[in-house]
């Protein structure tokens, strides 16, 4: 038996919005640790890893590990029926083939439940080893989103370089080229407005902008994003979900043959 009660239901709504354009179908894994997911996009270029820790739920009951295959677009449709202030409860029976989403409004005078059929999906989990990254940059998530959007009006790919000077985003296209440099800046009013650059080694990698733009759908989940880069490794963009966990996106680079 599985029963997860999330008081801040809007978090789950935002999580689905952040993933549904990247991934069509995915297995949600539920264990004593929490509610998690690892899934790749159809071209196996990008991967999303989600963790909502059990402690973040008001009530968390998971008698045995359960894997639930769902179409993320359908889950998103159901969650759109929940109000932003609603409490969301996810329920499933062991070995059952359905999941129920229950929404309670704050006044507790409207309770809705939606039952959805589960899917049998092949699990394609990748082992992601802990790595020492050459550079780790934390910056406001809105700034990162703005940069990806602006550059994609000029080019399709972006070169992200980290040096002592800062993090540089460069693109080129038919109309010309563009460079945006963000320098380390810790003299800000609020810590989440800072740009913090941790660099062990200079690094420069090329990525497809359309995937980065898709990752920025997670912007509303966190005021900051942490971008980790190493030559010969996929980029990681991590959005922390306050008190609960994270959503991490991995993106394979473009490399000269």
């Amino acid at each position: 038996m599985l029963e997860l009660r999330l008081v801040q239901g809007s978090l789950l709504k935002k999580v689905l919005e952040a993933m549904k354009d990247l991934v069509t179908d995915a297995n949600f894994d539920c264990s004593a640790t929490g509610f998690s997911l690892q899934a790749m996009d159809s071209s196996h270029v990008a991967l999303v890893a989600l963790l909502l820790r059990s402690e973040g739920f008001e009530h968390y009951r998971c008698d045995r590990n359960i894997t639930m295959g769902m179409n993320l677009n359908n889950v998103s449709k159901l969650l759109k029926c929940a109000g932003n202030d609603d409490i969301i409860t996810i329920k499933a029976d062991d070995g059952g083939d359905t999941v129920t989403f229950m929404f309670e409004n704050p006044k507790q005078d409207k309770i809705s439940d939606f039952e959805m059929k589960l899917m049998d999906l092949d699990s394609e989990h990748l082992g992601i080893p802990d790595a020492e990254y050459h550079a780790i940059v934390r910056m406001p998530s809105l700034e990162f989103s703005r940069i990806c959007k602006d550059l994609s009006s000029i080019g399709d790919t972006v070169v992200i370089s980290v040096t002592k000077e800062g993090i540089k985003f460069s693109t080129r296209g038919d109309i010309g080229n563009a460079n945006i440099v963000c320098r380390q800046n810790t003299t800000v009013d609020k810590p989440e407005e800072a740009t913090v650059i941790q660099m062990n080694e200079a690094v420069s990698l090329t990525f497809a902008l359309r995937y980065l733009n898709s990752f920025t759908k997670a912007t509303s989940l966190s005021e900051t994003v942490t971008i980790s880069l190493s030559s010969e490794l996929p980029l990681v963009a991590e959005y922390k979900i306050a008190d609960m966990g994270y959503i991490k996106f991995y993106l394979a680079p473009k490399i000269e043959d």
């Binding site: 790749m40 270029v45 991967l47 989990h125 010969e232 473009k254 000269e256």
Partner: peptide
């Protein structure tokens, strides 16, 4: 032109 890599080049299936 740089070629788009896939994740399996970097991470092995579990």
């Amino acid at each position: 032109k740089p070629k788009q890599q896939v994740l399996s080049r970097f991470f092995a299936p579990k």
